[in-house]
Design a protein around this nucleic acid. Structure first.
Lengths: 154, 154
DNA sequence: GTTAAAGATGTATATTATATATTGCTTTTA
DNA sequence: TAAAAGCAATATATAATATACATCTTTAAC
């Protein structure tokens, strides 16, 4: 592990935002179809911030992954079958800005060798390989041990 | 692009630290073998912080990629042939903590479903695919247009 | 042997990104 | 009409990252 200024450098991470998005989809996938779940219930189950989760579910709704029903007795549920929700697609949409290094964004690039540098292309190729793996899985693939999942979430 | 609290979420990025490490290796690779280069020269060429670059070169020295010669008339140069320096290896060493999500680190994991969740394995698989691509390239692969590179760095 | 150039090292600060909290909405149904 | 639920914007806190600063040590030229 690289220690830098006595602090640990952590990189290539997904945001907690994406993490929560995936967790929410798994939670809803483990529930019976059509059954409504409140944001409160999910935040209690995972013991995470309800306010933050609210932003996450709102976006999942906008993206069409879940259906959100407002008002008393409302809640959320999957808007698609678990097998129709690809992990790669979710990750691409919840964190779309994959600017691995400075030169990925022409607007902010300051690196002089950018016109001649082939590093960008190689990193882009690596990123595609990463996402290609995630494209091979759907939410359904994570529901194999559904009973254990629900038990852990009590 | 996901706007979150009116700020852009940027993820999966390499640190500037790794970026500078790769740029330094490319710079040194483009130079004639044995020729010494000062940190000042590289920081001038790329127009980046000399102090930061100093930490970068120090670590590259520790890892055996470059030779650092202190004192007047000193400088740095590659300690290996460009074709012997694999990009994947450099990236792994300059940012070793690939904790893509919380549960990658058992010490800090708080997610209840971790024992049953298969997401971790899938993300790890995707990360391997990413690094595997970088393992296919060496510094030499980036020196094809060496003349243009050196010209851009004037 | 002194001086200047060069890297080494530790610490402090600034900046940015990210996560969470707060507040006050709107919608809906009991 | 009140309470439950999601919506939305903003503010704050935390953490990670980048950079700056200060003081070393090493080495070669003079």
């Amino acid at each position: 592990m690289l220690y830098y200024c006595e602090k640990v450098v952590k990189s290539m991470r997904l945001t907690v935002y994406t993490d929560y998005s995936l967790r929410t989809l798994i939670y809803l996938g483990a529930k019976n179809e059509d059954e409504l779940t409140t944001i409160q219930e999910i935040s209690d189950a995972y013991n995470i911030s309800k306010n933050h989760l609210m932003k996450v579910t709102h976006q999942l709704g906008q993206l069409g992954y879940i259906e959100t029903i407002r008002g008393r007795g409302g809640g959320i549920r999957l808007a698609k079958l678990p097998k129709a929700i690809t992990i790669g697609e979710v990750v691409r949409q919840t964190e779309e800005d994959f600017h691995l290094v400075e030169c990925f964004d022409p607007a902010s690039n300051m690196c002089k060798i950018a016109p001649a540098c082939q590093l960008k292309g190689v990193l882009a190729e690596a990123l595609q390989a990463y996402l290609a793996v995630l494209d091979r899985y759907t939410v359904e693939d994570f529901l194999g041990n559904r009973d254990l999942l629900m038990q852990l979430l009590q």
